[in-house]
Design a protein around this nucleic acid. Structure first.
Lengths: 212, 212
DNA sequence: CAATCTATCGACACTGTGTTGACTATGTCA
DNA sequence: TGACATAGTCAACACAGTGTCGATAGATTG
């Protein structure tokens, strides 16, 4: 994943890195209280105990702050996901379930950040690219899973695995997003994983072998 | 669908309705050249040959203009969709195909509007609601189709039909959106319909009966 | 022909962004 | 030690955009 820590500041010693962390923490706190649009650079600066111009010494915009936050979460999520897949061992249905669950958990734990990112994506090329890279990561994992199941003769052939994976991952992103933000129509938070998994199952295997 | 023509203005006779149409037309034209964020109320006003304060006589914000545009397109799309389903007759696979195709065509024909709406949705409750109502319309149609195929014993039972429909419709929205805006990862525009249809088929029937 | 209503806009108040230039610490090395 | 660079800071400025108020012109109607 890209190194965002250098986004928009000159290299520096220590006390400035602390400031940077303070800004990020302040941003997280503020996002818990209101939407990104309603947070001004001044709010961010005040929250970190500095003036607005000083903020610009550390980040080029509030957007960059959110992207730095997202970068951090994406890396953390990658590790959690890796662990989840290791824990599942060789039980294939469990692999799929844990894969999806780890995505859902990341969404859940960083609900407000996800909301802010969703606000950014349509307006910012950089946000769009970063989000795309994260989605791409899920797609690649899924492609590996599909291909391996096809080789074993368990999964249906027909749709190119990457096309299938792209579709299913976007579906999952939207379903989770709608559930967690309350965007109608949506599925209740406690059912969304089961339904998603069922559709993954049918799309890949043609049946409900991933649980039902 | 809701009557948006009264959004934010006092009732009035004729010449003002023309102005309103001029503003809408101006908005459509401007959206073809740059994103909603880069269009100011002043641009909109100038485009319709009026001053900025006069704009506010007709619409409370540029957001309201986009929503009025969307409302119009949604109604038009509903009719096209209805016709498409009539044309399909009783050929069930053709019904599904034409249903999805009419959505794709609407996206295609109003690409720039869809882009503007996507920008609005995360920031505006009203936009979120209207978009939700449009999606809901597709979901309801799909539920009818799924239930009727289940009654005939052709479609797989198991997942509640509304849950299935919500998931598939959101998937389709995201796939089309990614394709038409170039958001990566995506499927090429000329393949996205076939792949979507294949997944609908597997999710509803467990096989590729909708084409392969 | 006065009263009323639609339509219009100049001018204002406000909020937020991003930049400039000056100032202060702090550490470096000649 | 003292000149020098450099990190860090912010008051003040210049903008761009939003939304509102009050005055006014033209049409309509009783």
């Amino acid at each position: 994943m890209s190194d965002v820590s250098g986004r928009g500041r000159r290299s520096r010693r220590v006390s400035g890195d602390d400031r940077e962390r303070l800004i990020l923490a302040s941003a997280e706190q503020l996002l818990a209280t209101r939407s990104l649009t309603d947070i001004s650079v001044d709010d961010l600066a005040k929250g970190a105990g500095i003036s607005r111009p000083t903020f610009y010494f550390y980040f080029p915009s509030k957007e960059a702050v959110v992207l730095a936050l997202l970068d951090r979460v994406a890396e953390e999520a990658r590790l959690i996901r890796e662990q989840a897949l290791l824990d599942a061992g060789t039980d294939v249905p469990e692999l799929w379930r844990r894969g999806l669950l780890s995505i859902l958990e990341t969404f859940r734990q960083h609900r407000v950040l996800m909301l802010a990112v969703a606000q950014l994506v349509p307006d910012s090329d950089e946000a769009q690219k970063l989000w795309g890279r994260i989605i791409e990561g899920f797609v690649n994992d899924s492609v590996l899973g599909i291909d391996s199941e096809r080789e074993r003769g368990r999964a249906l052939p027909g749709v190119p695995s990457r096309d299938l994976a792209i579709s299913l991952v976007w579906m999952t992103e939207r379903m989770f997003h709608a559930s967690l933000t309350g965007q109608e129509p949506n599925l209740p938070e406690d059912q969304v994983l089961e339904v998603a998994l069922r559709i993954w199952s049918r799309a890949i295997y043609g049946d409900d072998s991933l649980g039902g």
